[in-house]
Simulated scan of single mutants.
Amino acid sequence: MEIALLPHVDEHTTVVAAEPAAVWRGIGDVLDRSFASVRSARYARLLGCADRTVSGPRPVAEGSTFQGLRVAAARPGRELVLVGRHRFSTYALVFRLDEAGPGRTRLRAETRARFPGPVGGLYRLLVIGTGGHAVAVRRLLSAVRRGAE
């Protein structure tokens, strides 16, 4: 999947009072907790996600999977690219880590997605248009920040 070809949806940022290595570990921990639940499994099955199991190396690396997501690229302490697809969307969630001063890391989460057809458009309205996606991503970032600090 070519990430750059997916339309930009949004980007959220937080600054973490921790070094990039700690933030990187925090991302993996939060993803494992967030996407390993029974609820996530049901959601992935309902939508027909390509990836429906948690598997692969830990800490996260290329080839690791979560329910609904697969690690397409992993540059520890710098960038984590997650991709996925289901009946209504093809998507990517890209975490980028940048230095933000001594002992501080800027963590950004960029979402890109395509929602084909009328049903995809309705799904986009339900997930993106309601603000639910933005809330979920901000919660992920906050959880990473709390865990790393």
Rank of each mutant, 00 (worst) to 15 (best):
R124T: 07
Y43T: 09
D51L: 06
E149S: 05
R124I: 07
A4R: 12
L47P: 02
A143F: 04
L46D: 15
L93D: 13
A100D: 14
Y43D: 08
R104P: 04
G28M: 05
A18E: 07
L46W: 15
G63M: 00
I27L: 14
E149G: 05
P7A: 07
A100F: 05
A73W: 01
A41N: 10
S55I: 02
D10V: 12
P20A: 11
D10P: 06
V23N: 03
L97N: 01
D32F: 06
T111Y: 10
V119G: 11
P20D: 09
T14P: 06
V23T: 05
V9S: 01
R75V: 13
P7C: 07
G84A: 05
P118H: 13
E11M: 13
G68E: 03
R114Y: 11
S89G: 09
A50T: 14
R58I: 01
R139G: 04
L80E: 02
R87E: 14
E19L: 13
A109I: 08
A50Q: 11
S64V: 02
V38T: 15
P20L: 11
T14K: 08
G77D: 05
V71H: 01
G121H: 09
L122T: 12
S64P: 00
G131K: 08
P116Q: 08
E149R: 03
R139W: 06
R85M: 07
H133W: 05
V71F: 00
V81K: 00
V83A: 07
L82K: 02
T14G: 09
S40M: 08
R45Q: 14
T130M: 09
P116K: 08
V127K: 06
R78G: 03
V30S: 04
F88E: 02
D29Q: 12
T111E: 15
R78F: 04
G129W: 10
T53K: 07
A109V: 07
R39M: 11
A18S: 13
T53Y: 00
G101L: 09
F35I: 03
L31Y: 11
I3L: 07
A44K: 01
A36Y: 04
A50P: 03
P7R: 06
A50C: 12
A109G: 10
R114Q: 12
H86G: 04
V83F: 02
G129L: 15
A22G: 09
A134D: 14
T130A: 09
D51K: 07
